[in-house]
């Protein structure tokens, strides 16, 4: 029972929300800065002084003022409900993420399994939004998203399972704790990615899959602007659209943090006992997560978009067989060593 857990329940469960909101404001700004720097530009520079740090606030203010438009032929309830379901699904998954050694929303045994289950609600909410808009672009985008997310759930789960058989627990806190210390090969931190050569492959599979699951480039087919306008978001405006963006960024953070927990030691400091502790733990955890987020952005501004058939080919013909083989190899390695 740490001091954090003695907080009132409402405050306790709001902590990830605060983190998500701050992160989203930061990430939107960061996305534009990364895009700018990679293209030899500067990105937003004017709002708020230093490097336009207040750009996200300005955007938010603009979005709040915007008119909330609901198409006449839309299915009203589902149309209104979809963004909230999507954000709720993203947010609910944060319950099992160990932000630091002192804070974790819900220390349940099925941790990562629950996370994977609850994120499958995202798919449904995407279909809901797409269908309720009663717009062909939305529907096409939604169906593509659904197909993509369902497909990529398989390699994601296989990659996660590979880690789980090494770690021996579904509880992410336990998984993190077992990565403490500093003795792999004597100098590397005790992170899972350094413990088993096949986990490196698992990480590559995992990373590709989470790119697809959070529909980032090069797998952003649901929103491919050139063909589908904005996919399932086409009819949304103002704060409802902002909810989608928030959910999307939250999803990105969630999966990056999951990657950080599973492969990079979660809140463990990279320097062993140095700079350790709950606060530092939180810092290191977010730092690792943000690095993965940065890589996602970096990829976004590097690679072109896949075609639908290529996307499906990559998933079903390459990633899934590879992840199964990798799974077996990891299991063998664990048995032998």
């Amino acid at each position: 029972m740490t001091w954090l857990e003695s907080l009132p329940l409402a405050v306790f469960v709001m902590i990830p929300l605060v983190i998500i909101l701050i992160y989203a404001l930061f990430a939107i700004w960061m996305e534009r800065k990364v895009a700018g720097f990679i293209q030899d530009r500067l990105g937003p520079m004017r709002v708020g002084g230093w490097h336009g740090w207040a750009q996200s606030f300005a955007d938010l203010l603009k979005l709040i003022q915007k008119e909330d438009i609901i198409p006449a032929e839309a299915s009203k309830f589902l149309f209104r409900f979809a963004p909230f379901l999507m954000f709720a699904a993203s947010y609910a998954a944060f319950a099992v993420i160990p932000f630091s050694s002192a804070y974790m929303g819900s220390n349940i045994d099925i941790g990562v399994f629950y996370l994977l289950a609850i994120t499958s609600l995202l798919t449904i909410s995407v279909i809901m939004a797409g269908w309720a808009s009663n717009n062909k672009w939305s529907l096409l985008g939604a169906m593509r998203t659904a197909a993509q997310m369902v497909s990529y759930e398989v390699p994601t789960i296989m990659a996660v399972l590979s880690v789980i058989i090494v770690a021996g627990s579904l509880n992410l806190m336990t998984v993190t704790e077992m990565q403490s210390g500093n003795d792999t090969l004597g100098f590397l931190p005790n992170w899972l990615i350094f413990q088993n050569p096949f986990l490196l492959v698992a990480f590559v599979i995992f990373f590709i899959s989470i790119l697809a699951e959070s529909h980032r480039v090069p797998f952003d087919l649901p929103e491919s602007e050139s063909e589908l306008v904005a996919g399932f978001q086409t009819e949304y405006s103002g704060m409802r659209w902002a909810m989608f963006m928030l959910a999307e960024y939250a999803d990105m953070l969630l999966l990056s943090l999951l990657g950080a927990v599973l492969f990079f030691g979660g809140w463990n400091s990279p320097f062993g006992g140095f700079m350790d502790g709950p606060i530092w733990g939180f810092f290191w955890f977010m730092f690792k997560g943000m690095i993965l987020v940065f890589v996602m952005m970096w990829i976004r501004w590097t690679l072109p978009r896949y075609r639908v058939d290529q996307l499906m080919y990559l998933c079903w013909s390459i990633l899934i067989p590879l992840s199964f083989i990798n799974f077996v190899l990891i299991a063998l390695w664990e048995m032998l060593f």
Binding site: L116, I118, V150
Partner: peptide
């Protein structure tokens, strides 16, 4: 809890889709 998570994963994330 496990059955609940399976329910969501399989029913909502699979069968319903």
């Amino acid at each position: 809890d496990f059955i609940a998570a399976t329910q969501i994963l399989v029913y909502v994330g699979g069968i319903l889709i």
